[in-house]
């Protein structure tokens, strides 16, 4: 291939690298939001490429709700040790000690206490003015209109009516006092692009993305992994071992598994193409009310 042509993946790759370099070159105290999922794996891989052979110019921040899959935490620790990166883990210890859990609280309040609040606190405390995240515009309707460099006010809130126009690759990173940026270098990637790129570059991901026999219980039509003994199992609930995998990873009680036999990357990709259910479907949080994601983002959810 040397007609100086770039495939769509190589174009997306170079564009994402450009965005990360803009952050590093022009933003005060940047941070990379590392949520351990496949998008974060791609994000970290791109960040390394952007600055190679120099070290990463920003730390990683993981918001740990204490309800993440055990395998996610193990993968996170192995990946970060391997890369020699600076990882900051943030938990709302007060709420965790209080026993905040996703069963007794509604998804909204749970997200606010264990995700949104500790995220905002960490950003404020460290004085991070630009947080790089792995969100994609194809994930949810409200995300289709968000900028790549998205402005947040002093309370980390998003105002869809006050977004800066984004032209060419001229990203305006200037900030008024108090404000900060969320930067989404994967904005133009789709779920399929992410998988194709993982395959192309052989990027390691959490094994939960591949099918295996796992203990699950069915709650309101969603298959939930019995990841530890905190999951309340009623007398009528049956724990079954089934071959399942996850299309998206978050808090285990809130993330639905799908029945699958895909144990290799090509099989996962094959399933992704055939899938007729969009990936956030497995997440309970988007469904509570119409426009749920938009409301959460206005509040400061990533």
């Amino acid at each position: 291939m040397n007609d100086y042509l770039l495939s769509h993946l190589r174009q997306l790759e170079s564009e994402s690298i450009f965005m990360m370099r803009e952050v590093a070159a022009t933003c005060e105290r940047p941070v990379l939001m590392y949520s351990v999922g496949k998008d974060s794996s791609v994000l970290l891989h791109l960040a390394r490429k952007a600055f190679d052979p120099a070290p990463l110019p920003f730390p990683l921040l993981h918001i740990d709700t204490s309800w993440k899959f055990k395998e996610m935490i193990a993968f996170r620790d192995a990946t970060c040790a391997d890369a020699g990166v600076d990882l900051i883990v943030r938990r709302n210890e007060e709420a965790i000690a209080r026993g905040v859990n996703p069963f007794d609280l509604g998804a909204d309040e749970y997200t606010r206490l264990l995700k949104t609040e500790p995220l905002k606190a960490a950003l404020t405390e460290h004085g991070f003015r630009a947080a790089i995240g792995g969100a994609r515009r194809d994930e949810e309707r409200s995300r289709a209109k968000e900028r790549v460099f998205s402005l947040r006010d002093g309370q980390h809130q998003w105002d869809p009516r006050r977004q800066r126009p984004e032209l060419w690759s001229l990203f305006n990173t200037r900030l008024p006092r108090e404000a900060s940026l969320r930067v989404f270098p994967l904005s133009n990637w789709t779920e399929l692009d992410v998988w194709l790129y993982i395959h192309l570059e052989q990027i390691p991901v959490v094994p939960l993305y591949f099918a295996a026999d796992r203990p699950v219980v069915e709650c309101n039509g969603t298959l939930v992994l019995v990841d530890d003994d905190r999951l309340p199992i009623g007398p009528g609930d049956a724990v079954e071992t089934r071959s399942v995998r996850f299309r998206t990873l978050g808090c285990y009680p809130l993330t639905g598994a799908c029945l699958s036999t895909a144990t290799t990357l090509p099989e996962v990709i094959q399933e992704t193409i055939a899938a007729r259910t969009s990936e956030r479907h497995g997440r309970v949080i988007d469904h509570e009310v119409d426009g749920a994601m938009e409301d959460k983002k206005r509040e400061g959810y990533f």
């Binding site: 770039l6 495939s7 993946l9 194709l196 090509p266 193409i273």
Partner: peptide
């Protein structure tokens, strides 16, 4: 599947 993947990795934009 591999062939499909390779073809799709090479698509332009």
């Amino acid at each position: 599947a591999e062939a499909w993947i390779e073809r799709h990795q090479q698509r332009d934009l």
